[in-house]
Amino acid sequence: MAVRVQQEDFDFGAEADAFAEGRADAGAVVTFTGLVRDRPDGGLREMEIEHYPAMTERAIAAIEAEAVSRWNLVDSLILHRYGRLRPGARIMMVATAAPHRADAFAAAEFLMDYLKSRAPFWKKEVTDAGAEWVAAQAEDEAALGRW
């Protein structure tokens, strides 16, 4: 189980390889990578991601512990960046390893849903017209209800 919160970019392939390396105990590895999505008009200059350093890793570790208690996982990795990111940049990744794929997929989705609205990150979109905080979506909150 690992949680990393960092400003620097990460190599998705290398992270996924390292995570899956020598996993004889897991028949399934699921990975998800989130990228900075441009605005429909292509006008996003950058995405600023702020976080609450003293709380972030704890909050994510608690979400991870909840996933471990619900599904049969042999390992998980949660990596989330902060700072100023360009459109297309990697923001975060989640990896889960489990004996069977159903657990790996479900746990990865659970982690994503909770990271969106229970980990202390805030996104701000910067465009030529100015900067605006991204509003939390009701559907993100509603997504927690399915767990």
Partner: peptide
């Protein structure tokens, strides 16, 4: 730790206020 607005403040050292989180 996430809390409610009626949470007690006694013996607390740090309180943070913020909008709903937008991670992921």
């Amino acid at each position: 730790e996430l809390a409610d607005f009626d949470a007690p403040v006694r013996d607390v050292t740090e309180i943070a206020f913020f909008p709903p989180m937008t991670g992921g």
